[in-house]
Amino acid sequence: MTRDSGSVKSPGPDEVLGPEGMEKFCEDIGVEPENIIMLVIAWKLEAPNMGFFTKEEWLKGMTLLQCDCIERLQGKLDYLHNHLNDTIIFKNIYRYAFDFARDKDQRSLDMDTAKSMLALLLGRTWPLFPVFNQFLEQSKYKVMNKDQWFNVLEFSRTVSTDLSNYDEDGAWPVLLDEFVEWQKARLAAL
């Protein structure tokens, strides 16, 4: 995509839009690379790797979005952002983010990546996120597996901020049991 012609250009002759091209793409559409909308675009394009779009993904995704120029894509940004407000679509984007962000030779997300993605996805909407992030900072966990990842979203949606409805006998991963214990101990100490 170039600003000069205004058209949505597919990746170049190497068939892949990489990190430098992604930066230029973000600049062209007026969005910071760390903006959650970039994750939504990647989800729409069904891109399996963070920081890269193949020509096939690009063409398929831009056709699906009916975008053939910068202005059309910019006009779709609000539409794409509204996906985050739909609980079912958001859940799909959240689940997609796990595989999108992990190293392909790993089954889990390294904790720094997990924390960054959780901040992007839940940081603005989950009141307990800052406390959960603080827990992760001091925890023994070095990675987050897919089950833990999926359950963090469910926990964020169903457990009240005072943790009063947390079922200790529920099927939560140990990570979340430990978070609840940690948070209750912190609150008791206040």
Rank of each mutant, 00 (worst) to 15 (best):
M1A: 12
T2Q: 09
D4W: 07
P13R: 12
P13C: 05
V16M: 10
G18F: 03
P19V: 11
P19M: 09
E23I: 07
F25Y: 08
F25V: 05
D28V: 14
G30E: 13
E32V: 04
N35M: 02
M38H: 05
K44H: 13
G51S: 10
G51H: 08
F52R: 05
F52C: 10
E56N: 13
L59N: 15
K60G: 04
L64A: 12
Q66L: 05
D68T: 10
C69V: 05
C69W: 07
I70D: 00
I70F: 01
E71P: 04
L73K: 03
G75I: 01
G75M: 03
L77D: 06
L77S: 04
D78N: 08
Y79W: 03
Y79G: 01
L80W: 02
H83G: 00
L84K: 04
T87L: 06
N92V: 03
Y94M: 10
Y94H: 11
R95C: 10
R95L: 10
R95M: 08
Y96M: 02
F100I: 06
F100C: 08
R102M: 00
D103T: 12
R107Q: 10
D112L: 11
D112I: 11
A114R: 03
M117I: 10
A119H: 15
A119I: 07
A119D: 15
L120E: 13
L120V: 14
L120S: 15
L121I: 02
L122G: 00
L122V: 01
R124C: 07
P127Q: 13
L128C: 08
F129E: 09
V131I: 15
F132R: 00
F132M: 00
N133C: 11
Q134S: 12
Q134T: 07
F135H: 05
F135W: 12
Q138T: 14
Y141W: 13
Y141Q: 11
V143R: 05
M144H: 02
N145I: 00
K146E: 08
K146D: 02
D147N: 02
D147M: 02
Q148F: 00
E154P: 01
R157Y: 04
T158P: 05
V159K: 04
T161P: 08
D162L: 05
N165E: 06
Y166V: 03
D167A: 15
E168G: 14
E168F: 14
G170S: 15
G170D: 14
A171K: 07
A171I: 09
W172Q: 04
P173S: 03
V174C: 02
V174R: 06
L175S: 01
L176Q: 01
F179H: 09
V180I: 13
V180D: 13
Q183P: 00
K184G: 05
A185Q: 13
R186K: 14
L187G: 08
A189E: 13
